[in-house]
Design a protein around this nucleic acid. Structure first.
Lengths: 221, 221
DNA sequence: AAGTGTATGAATCGCTTGTTTGAAAGTCAA
DNA sequence: TTGACTTTCAAACAAGCGATTCATACACTT
């Protein structure tokens, strides 16, 4: 009895929620177990009890993120048969970009993986391929179709990279937004406009590459 | 006399060199004072003695990097009068990209600043504007010229962002190269080809944006 | 009511971190 | 040689970290 135990039995869930949010914001290394448990209003030892250790908790968060990313891929990737490559590209960017810009329930996994870039944990490797490779492979196919007869593996790779780079640039970033705040779209409208821009900009770029003669390599200027 | 004291009086320089390399590789937080001093074959207390504290050493490294970045800007930025916008853009990307890809003596400051993105130190803010704003402003002017009569502030900003995004994507990154190694050019030849690609891809993209009618906004599809 | 397994809590351990200390060793002018 | 000053060094300090311990409180079966 005493004074109403907080034993809500969902301590584990509260820790997971707090960990997901904090890991997403700051990455693995810059979040302490004390941060998580105090945020989740749980005891320090609860992490060890429920998840073995801090890394076990992190892996659990990654697992959940991977599932959400796979769900996302089903929404950004249009069936190639029944849609033109142009439609596929426009749809992909328009669905992809909002999830990159806003790290909400659907896009937080990308921000979390971004922290892995500067601070790799080695656990993320396996999760990554499942999360982002499908999108890359889809884009690769679409770009190959768009290049048509001018397609070469190098050209496909370079064009795909150009598109990916333009999208991933918008992963939230305290430093970038500090340095050049104007370049980060904030409203839904601005995000949609940026997505349309990337699609049209890239379609024109791909067409220009496709128009170059094949062979040793055209070197302008 | 005795056995040749290591007192080479350049302890301070050795620490600066080691710190520059280690901070560039791992960022401020993931380098310890012990890492630096052991690498520089100096005593642990030498950092406090010569630079006050770890942050003072970091600021000193940033100062040096800022000067190297300003030097770099004079090499990537072509005088606008006397060169066509196309020439300016191609020259910029071709000079810029190698310094991004290879973090050698000329480009390490960008990699160092990249760590600030996920792990801001608050000291870097002032250094950043001096290092990267000139390039952005130059690109903004070039893109404005290329858009010509179709130019609007939003279009200029979006096109400039597309170019910057394609370049900055190639900042070295243990995680990215782990996930998609094929997308990181390694040889000088591959880097040059990628730079040419970005220039032509972007020029075509800009022309396509310029060809859109002005006004409320063309929404394709 | 007693017993069993699960979950929580406060305290503590062992380790790494940045920083400080005070002595020793060097340099150099008088 | 003396004496003041600068630089190096080993050792220690205080704080923060992840992890562990062990007693306690709960839920549930018998």
């Amino acid at each position: 009895m005493t004074s109403a135990p907080v034993h809500a039995a969902d301590t584990r869930e509260r820790i997971l929620e707090a960990a997901t949010r904090l890991f997403t914001e700051r990455g693995f290394a810059r979040v302490t177990v004390r941060d998580i448990t105090s945020d989740a209003k749980a005891n320090l030892a609860a992490v060890s009890y429920h998840f073995g250790d801090k890394l076990g908790l992190y892996e659990r968060v990654l697992e959940i993120g991977l599932r959400s990313a796979q769900q996302m891929n089903t929404e950004t990737i249009l069936p190639r048969e029944g849609h033109t490559p142009e439609e596929c590209l426009r749809h992909y960017v328009r669905e992809y970009l909002p999830r990159i810009v806003r790290s909400d329930d659907r896009g937080w996994i990308f921000q979390l993986l971004k922290h892995e870039m500067s601070n790799p944990t080695a656990v993320a490797r396996s999760y990554v391929r499942g999360a982002i490779m499908p999108g890359i492979e889809f884009l690769t196919g679409v770009v190959g179709d768009l290049l048509g007869e001018a397609s070469t593996p190098e050209r496909v790779r370079r064009c795909t990279t150009s598109i990916q780079a333009q999208c991933l640039f918008f992963l939230p970033d305290p430093f970038k937004s500090m340095v050049m705040p104007d370049f980060q779209p904030s409203t839904d409208e601005a995000i949609r406009e940026m997505a349309d821009h990337i699609a049209e900009f890239s379609l024109a770029g791909i067409r220009a590459i496709a128009a170059q003669r094949r062979g040793p390599r055209v070197r302008p200027r």
